[in-house]
Every structure is written in C-alpha cells, then in structure tokens.
Amino acid sequence: MKNPFVRGLAVMIGGASAFFSVYQGGSWSIVLIALVFFFLAAFIRAESDDTTIFIIASGEVLVIAVGAASFWAGVIAQCSVIGLVLEDRECLADSRGRSFFALYCIVTFTGAFIFDLANQVLLLFLAVTAVVAGAAIIFAGVQEIQERRMYSGVKK
C-alpha cells in the first residue's frame, strides 16, 4: 500500500537538496523548474508505469541541476528520486523492500564516493557500469537456466 508520508518525505528530501544546491551557488531558475516538474510527477495521477517514467525523467533533471552546484546534494536527490519510485511501486511496503532500498543507497553512495575521487571518470564509469550490468545479467541468466533445467521434466 502506498504510504503518503514516505512519498512526502522523499519529495521533501529532493526539495531540500535542491535548496541546498541553490544555497551553494547553483542556478536557481533551472533548479526551480526541475523541482516543479519533480513535484508534479510525484503527485500526478497516471498509470503506474507512466508515473514511474515521469518521476525518473523529472527526477534525473533535478539530480543533474542540483549536482551541477553540489555533487553530494545530487547524490541525495538521486536517492530521494529512487526512493520515490520504489514507494510509488509499493516496493517499500515490507522490511525486505526497505532493506533493499537501504542497500541500494549504500552502494550508490559508495559509487558516488568513487566517482568523486576519480581523476579519469569515463573509464571508471565504463568499468563500474559494465561490472554491475554484467553481474546482473550473469546472475539472472544462470538462475533462469538452472530453473529451466530443474523443472523441465527431462530425465537425464
């Protein structure tokens, strides 16, 4: 079930990070426009899939606008956007979902820390992204093959 409190909290965190970035000297007009779009997407009544896409699209604009002024404010905004998406799709309803989000935030912060320290961001980005995507594809593929073999009913 959707929790309006969690939704409000996620939007507030996104807003707070936006104001923090303006305080740091960012372009307030771009941040303000991005923030308005993010608010609209957060409370729009549309089909679930569409809402998810709206939140992500407007959220990423906000993250980039905020991150231009303050990188770590952008990281926090990103976590709030993903939190809002997961809450919208009712993924935070149980403790497993909340643990999943917490783990995601930890890994995101770790990744952000690495990006912040790196001198050559492009190579690092390609490497880390390839590792993450490859790990997911291999894990999902292997498990799918195992399940199909296990339940195919073909006698070996």
Binding site: V63, G67, G111, A133, A135, E147
Partner: peptide
C-alpha cells in the same frame, strides 16, 4: 559532457535496473 554528475546519474540508474532484476530473480526463485 564529461560531467561527473551525469556519470553518477547514469550509473545509479544502471545500478537500479541491475538491483531490481536480481531482486526479481530472487523473489521468483
């Protein structure tokens, strides 16, 4: 653009997709 914020945003979305895929596989299993 070569901006770290763009790299981070892309990475975080890739990470989200990968995490959701693995979560789905766990739950399906």
């Amino acid at each position: 653009a070569g901006d770290p914020t763009f790299f981070f945003a892309t990475f975080s979305l890739v990470l989200l997709s990968a995490a959701l895929a693995m979560r789905f596989r766990f739950r399906m299993h």
